[in-house]
């Protein structure tokens, strides 16, 4: 069960993409929908990603998805309280490595996209809300729908995603315990090192 969930988790992240120019960032639900539809459109028309071209998938994620994510917040949430005492340099390293890890995994998952479609659940928010959850689900032939929720916060530059929950599993908070264990043995620098090692292995495996 988990493996399928994670595939979709990663896939969903990547689905949350699209060319920024045409994306409506004024409301969070419009943002999620526009970005998702753009990525779906790209996936449908570009057979090389389906064929397993991870590099191409990564490029799609890089140009379309990333602008709508707040990686600093995501990293801070995953790192937990050590974040407060980390130096600016350490924060930057952590964010870069975490971001690389996520992008790699999502790009990988994107290549397994087949015939799934995305449905958008009813969304309501007050005009004053600055922190909301947009609910969607991935519908796949032969499987039950997988709920994908996006947590967004309002910033000056518009709405930014800071977490994605797939079937109730938060991508960001799921790293907390692992990160905490790494930092207990090696401190913040130890975590950076582990993330870097992981990222380098993933690259080599590709």
């Amino acid at each position: 069960m988990f493996k399928r969930i994670f595939q979709l988790l990663l896939l969903s992240f990547a689905l949350n993409a699209g060319a920024q120019a045409s994306v409506d960032t004024s409301t969070p639900d419009a943002l999620v929908k526009d970005v998702t539809e753009e990525v779906l459109a790209t996936l449908r028309t570009d057979p090389s990603i389906k064929a397993g071209d991870v590099k191409k998938a990564a490029a799609l994620v890089e140009t379309s998805v990333l602008p709508h994510f707040n990686f600093t917040r995501m990293t801070a949430l995953a790192v937990g309280r050590e974040w407060r005492t980390a130096t600016d340099e350490q924060k930057k390293q952590l964010t870069d490595e975490f971001r690389t890890l996520l992008v790699r995994t999502y790009s990988n998952a994107l290549t397994s996209f087949r015939n799934q479609t995305v449905e958008y659940r009813p969304f309501k928010m007050a005009p004053t809300d600055t922190d909301v959850t947009v609910r969607t689900q991935i519908v796949q032939p032969g499987g039950r729908p997988i709920p994908i929720d996006y947590a967004l916060e309002k910033q000056d530059a518009g709405w930014k995603v800071y977490d994605v929950m797939v079937a109730g599993v938060s991508l960001v908070t799921n790293y907390r315990e692992t990160f905490a264990a790494e930092m207990r043995t090696g401190g913040v620098d130890g975590l950076v090192k582990s993330l870097h090692a992981k990222n380098t292995t993933t690259t080599a495996a590709k």
Binding site: F2, K3, R4, I5, Q7, R104, T105, A109, T178, E182
Partner: peptide
């Protein structure tokens, strides 16, 4: 989904 979880997990 297996390669995805292997890729994601430290």
């Amino acid at each position: 989904a297996e390669s995805a979880i292997d890729a994601a997990a430290l």
